[in-house]
């Protein structure tokens, strides 16, 4: 679960420490915006997302433009000002993983409150707040992408062409447990069949039901449910799901 905090509220103070505690507990949360207000960060230019290594817009300032992103940040950010028209999504871990905090256009935020620091692992600027909750956009046309976290967030593995080795199908890929599969985006024009072994075989059991493949339809994204999540070891692309092994 992610810590989720929004900057959409006005005139309220956040419970940062509580938020961090809940983050450690893995509890979904919507907390309140930072104490940073529109009057702070006076040096942040219009059209820029400004990142500071000091609190309250102090220290060294780094500016990025609308639509910018950083899947891995150095971890030095202590405050931000979003002077763009987009929403800023700020994540607790690299590759849009971990907790999420959003900063609405023209607002700022603090990542040290009451002596407790919230680490910034990555960030991106998006045109609508709902797009902060997904990382699927990293997966490009014709690619199969798997993700370490739900909803396309966290570390991503990209498959843009099939393996050609003799032990693999010429239209698929096999791999080990290092490939995450909490969620999947099938950006190809074919359906996708996943298997629990590297030889395009195997089964899953759930109660009295035995499954031989997990299907992700073409053009679709999915947060993979149990018992399939995290167990994929190979996949192939097919024109019809009847072609799954």
């Amino acid at each position: 679960m992610n810590i989720i905090r929004t900057s959409t509220r006005i005139g309220v103070r956040r419970g940062s420490l509580f938020a961090v505690l809940l983050a450690l507990l893995g509890t979904a949360l919507l907390t309140l915006p930072g104490k940073a207000d529109a009057a702070a960060f006076p040096d942040c230019p219009a059209g820029r997302f400004c990142l500071y290594d000091g609190s309250g817009g102090t220290g060294t300032r780094t500016d990025v433009t609308e639509g910018a992103k950083a899947e891995r940040d150095a971890g030095t950010i202590l405050s931000v000002k979003n002077n763009t028209r987009m929403w800023a999504c700020v994540y607790g871990r690299p590759e849009y993983g971990g907790g999420l905090q959003t900063v609405r256009p023209t607002h700022g935020d603090e990542y040290v409150v009451g002596g407790t620091r919230w680490m910034v692992g990555s960030y991106k600027l998006v045109p609508a707040r709902a797009l902060c909750f997904t990382g699927y956009e990293r997966c490009q046309d014709t690619e199969v992408c798997t993700f370490a976290e739900r909803n396309g967030r966290g570390a991503m593995t990209v498959f843009d062409k099939p393996d050609t080795g003799p032990s693999t199908h010429d239209h698929g890929n096999s791999y080990g447990p290092e490939v995450p599969s909490a969620s999947v985006f099938n950006q190809t024009g074919k359906h996708l069949c996943f298997y629990p072994t590297a030889t395009y075989q195997g089964t899953w059991r759930q109660g009295s039901t035995t499954y031989g493949a997990y299907v992700v339809l073409r053009g679709q994204s999915v947060t993979v449910p149990a018992p399939f999540a995290g167990t994929f070891r190979s996949h192939e692309l097919v024109d019809g799901t009847s072609e799954c092994q």
Partner: peptide, 12 residues
């Protein structure tokens, strides 16, 4: 001010 109240767990 109230956008998230119904959904939020907060000490604020």
């Amino acid at each position: 001010a109230t956008l998230t109240t119904a959904l939020a767990l907060t000490t604020s």
